[in-house]
Design a protein around this nucleic acid. Structure first.
Length: 407
DNA sequence: TGCTTACTAACTACCACAGGAATCG
DNA sequence: TCCGATTCCTGTGGTAGTTAGTAAG
């Protein structure tokens, strides 16, 4: 599988599969940071009728990636995964990406780097650039997942399919949840782009829903779960993340699973998974899985039915989300960005000048009791605008300050 | 075990207006 | 068929408020 990921069938990364906002932003960032000339030539820079919707990235981006001047010799996976100093790897070109990120992005990196089983977290990016990489040489530096550490071993045979056919049907509606926790997933599954060696898209679209709130955790869990083999020893998985597991088709197993299975059972499961990975009988295993799950034992606090329900609910929610936020008109975005706002709402351009005036009036002569409700509203508006002008986001803070000054 | 409270994350409405799209002569 | 003028209305982002879900007591 690992080899599969390192040697995907298709050499070029189909960026159109990068459908999550996060991944798009990452690639956008890469494009801007690494290939400014490309960006300049893109339609995005043009204001008139330019359309850089997410799906429009592919052509430019693919060409951009094909021209990445990345020095493989400087790229050291081990360095990247060194928990002690993830940001000191300034010599390789990844530092361009990570060093220039803000704190949150550093958290991303930290979460990746410090995850004990996130060793391969950078691989998708490497894959995207494998035309320039000597990936076989890189593989040498890639630690082999160790089943003894709870990480299953991957088949070295790149030709071996991850699973037998297409569990794709499994993902349809109820079928999804029928996948037990330890089942490896068919890379062709749309819900499992995280495993897709073709798209190399580590960032599953679903991740986006978790990133804003707890990005590092989610990403860490994601990456860890991806490369950690069939079982994630996720002791800290939150219920929400448990639902996230559902999106990954039960790729992870929570602590509850650990409690249920003995180490020997876990090993057996691992073996089964490995067996499956090796293509040694996916169909039979699938039937085993079915029987396995239908045995109706509870997975920790969640019964199979409960888990199904959770997963189904999450999948439904996820599908309803709009990950395809597209900017049809870049000029409008530019305008919106430069447009004055009052508490997040667009404000009239002339409103600033007019409304600030009352704020500048001498309120000292006004008796506090004479201030009507209307006057209060005007003052609020004025303070709103004051907040906007002063660059202070907190209207309440300003209003409090203004109120004090008016007294 | 069930209830209440507190908290978090996701989602949605709101706003002004430039400019794309449609229409007309 | 093309072109200019006019009108309509779409789309843009940050914030506040609402809702749903969950944990803790």
């Amino acid at each position: 599988m690992l080899q599969d990921m390192i040697h995907p069938p298709e050499q070029q990364l189909p960026i159109e599969d990068i459908c999550s906002p996060v991944s798009s932003q990452i690639f956008e960032f890469c494009e801007q940071e690494l290939f400014p000339e490309t960006l300049q030539n893109s339609d995005v820079s043009s204001c008139s009728n330019c359309c850089y919707e997410d799906n429009s990235y592919p052509t430019n981006l693919c060409s951009s990636f094909s021209s990445i001047p990345l020095d493989v010799g400087k790229l050291n996976i081990n360095n990247i995964n060194t928990p002690t100093n993830p940001t000191t790897n300034t010599n390789n070109n990844f530092s361009i990406i990570f060093d220039s990120q803000d704190e949150n992005d550093n958290d991303i990196f930290a979460s990746i780097s410090f995850s004990p089983i996130s060793t391969f977290s950078v691989l998708p990016l490497l894959e995207a650039q494998q035309d320039q990489f000597d990936l076989p040489s890189l593989q040498v530096q890639i630690p082999v997942a160790d089943s003894a550490n709870g990480i299953s071993t991957y088949s070295p045979d790149p030709s071996v399919p991850l699973t037998e056919p297409p569990l794709q049907a499994v993902f349809e509606e109820d079928g999804l949840s029928s996948l037990p926790s330890y089942v490896r997933l068919d890379p062709s599954s749309p819900s499992c782009s995280v495993l897709d060696p073709t798209t190399c898209s580590i960032l599953d679209p679903t991740m986006g829903s978790f990133l804003p709130g707890n990005l590092s955790t989610a990403l860490s869990a994601d990456v860890s779960g991806l490369f950690g083999g069939s079982i994630l020893m996720g002791a800290d998985l939150q219920p929400q993340e448990l639902e996230f597991q559902g999106d990954n088709c039960g790729l992870y197993a929570s602590t509850s699973l650990q409690r249920v299975y003995s180490s020997g059972e876990m090993q057996n499961i691992n073996n089964d998974s490995t067996h499956l990975v090796n293509g040694g009988g996916g169909a039979s295993l699938t039937s085993e899985i079915s029987a396995f799950e239908e045995s109706t034992y509870k997975v920790g606090r969640l019964s199979v039915e409960e888990r199904k329900e959770k997963i189904h609910r999450y999948m439904k929610k996820r599908n309803e989300r709009n990950f395809s936020k597209k900017i049809k008109y870049a000029c409008r975005k530019t305008l919106a960005d430069s447009r004055p706002r009052v508490r997040g709402r667009f404000a009239k351009n002339d409103e600033l000048g007019e409304a600030v005036r009352p704020n500048c009036s001498n309120h000292e002569v006004e008796d506090e009791e004479e201030i009507t409700v209307k006057d209060d509203e005007e003052m609020i508006d004025a303070s709103d605008i004051y907040a906007h002008i002063s660059g202070v986001n907190s209207f309440k803070c300003n209003y409090a300050l203004q109120s004090q000054s008016w007294m």
